[in-house]
Simulated scan of single mutants.
Amino acid sequence: MNIEKSTIALAGMFQAAELVRQIARQGLFDQGQFETSIQSLLKLEADSVEDVYGEIGGIKTGLQVLCGQLGAGVQREMEVMHYVLGMILLERKLMKSDDLLLNIRAGIESAQAQVEMYTINHPNVIVYLANLYSQTLGTLDFRLKVNGEKRFLENQNNADKIRALLLAGIRSTVLWRQKGGKRLQFIFSRRKILRKAQQLLERIKS
Rank of each mutant, 00 (worst) to 15 (best):
D141T: 10
A106G: 11
F152K: 09
D47W: 03
K5T: 13
M81K: 07
I120K: 12
M87K: 03
Q33T: 09
A46H: 08
Q69D: 05
R105A: 01
Q22T: 12
R105Q: 13
A113R: 07
V146W: 00
N131V: 00
A168V: 07
M1I: 09
R191Y: 11
N155F: 03
I193K: 06
M87G: 06
G107C: 04
L19H: 05
Q114W: 05
L129Q: 00
Q22M: 13
V146P: 04
I56W: 03
Q64C: 04
R183G: 03
L167F: 03
E202G: 14
V80T: 14
N2M: 05
T36V: 13
F14W: 11
I104D: 13
R25Y: 10
I187Q: 00
Q112A: 06
G107I: 00
V80P: 02
V65T: 15
T139I: 08
K179M: 15
K179L: 11
S206V: 12
I126H: 09
L167G: 04
G68T: 10
K179A: 14
R203W: 05
K182E: 14
L140Q: 12
V65Q: 01
K93T: 02
K161A: 12
L194K: 08
I204K: 03
S134E: 06
Y118N: 09
F152L: 10
G148S: 04
P123I: 03
L201T: 14
E18A: 13
Q39H: 15
Q199I: 04
T139C: 08
I3G: 01
N2T: 10
L200D: 06
M13H: 05
R195W: 05
Q178M: 14
G32F: 07
E154T: 12
K182W: 05
K60A: 09
Q39Y: 13
G107A: 05
G148P: 02
T119A: 04
I193Y: 09
L184N: 11
L89K: 09
C67E: 06
N2G: 07
S206Y: 07
R203C: 01
E77C: 11
G57Y: 03
N121T: 06
Q15C: 02
R151F: 01
S6A: 10
N147R: 05
G54R: 01
Y128I: 00
L137A: 09
Q112R: 12
M13C: 15
S97Q: 08
V65A: 00
I3S: 07
E18M: 11
L165K: 02
R76C: 05
A106D: 13
Q156W: 02
G68D: 01
A9D: 01
L167E: 00
L167H: 07
V49T: 14
N103T: 01
Q185T: 04
Q15G: 02
L66N: 11
N131W: 02
Q178L: 12
R190N: 11
I38M: 03
Q112H: 04
L44M: 15
G107F: 01
I193E: 12
M81R: 05
L165A: 14
L63Q: 06
